[in-house]
């Protein structure tokens, strides 16, 4: 029966090693416990938190979860190209052009209520994800321009179509005159064409 001894010792030795390993891993598992996926939180921080749903998800956090699971990073029109670039940097992915209709890209717009037409139905207040519309039932509403993110979610619910999207007004102390046209052909495109 002496051939049983090395087998027994082998089982003892390996049992010892695996037991120690399992004990260590159990400690480490408790020590490094993660409640939620920290990556989702980092992505969520980069998103603009308009909760506008233009990415096809019910809000910014669900979209952050989808990005962490591998969805494209260019679905957020309110964030614009800057957000896409920052997400690409964060995730080590290649940057993509923003996936949105061309006319909405690069335009910084805010909602504007035509106050003479407003009937005070509060539907736009309920739609606004950032609480940028003030007003009460049967009283005129108005948009707090500084708080508006330009997500245009309030446009559709309005029963009298009194909300329109306008370019964000520039405060007087930040207004910059448009650049002059330097080259003559820029100034007179028709003349430039005539001379070939």
């Amino acid at each position: 029966m002496s051939w049983l001894v090395p087998i027994g010792l082998g089982m003892l030795g390996l049992g010892l090693i695996t037991g120690l390993g399992a004990w260590l891993l159990d400690i480490a598992n408790r020590r490094f416990k993660t409640e939620s996926d920290p990556l989702v939180a980092r992505i969520d921080q980069e998103l603009p938190q308009t909760q506008c749903g233009q990415c096809g998800h019910p809000g910014c956090h669900p979209y952050a979860e989808a990005i962490a699971a591998g969805e494209a990073i260019n679905r957020c029109p309110p964030g614009g190209q800057d957000t896409v670039d920052r997400l690409a940097e964060l995730l080590g992915r290649d940057t993509l052009p923003l996936d949105a209709e061309p006319e909405t890209v690069g335009q910084d717009t805010v909602a504007w209520i035509i106050e003479a037409d407003c009937i005070g139905c509060t539907k736009c207040i309920q739609a606004c994800p950032v609480d940028a519309i003030v007003g009460a039932a049967k009283l005129m509403h108005t948009v707090i321009t500084d708080a508006c993110t330009g997500c245009d979610l309030c446009v559709a619910p309005c029963p009298v179509d009194c909300i329109e999207m306008i370019p964000r007004p520039v405060p007087a102390n930040r207004w910059v005159p448009p650049k002059p046209s330097v080259i003559a052909t820029d100034r007179y495109p028709q003349a430039g064409l005539a001379h070939g």
Partner: peptide
Amino acid sequence: ELALKKTSPL
């Protein structure tokens, strides 16, 4: 892996 998942999820 456990330590890395906690300290550097990226």
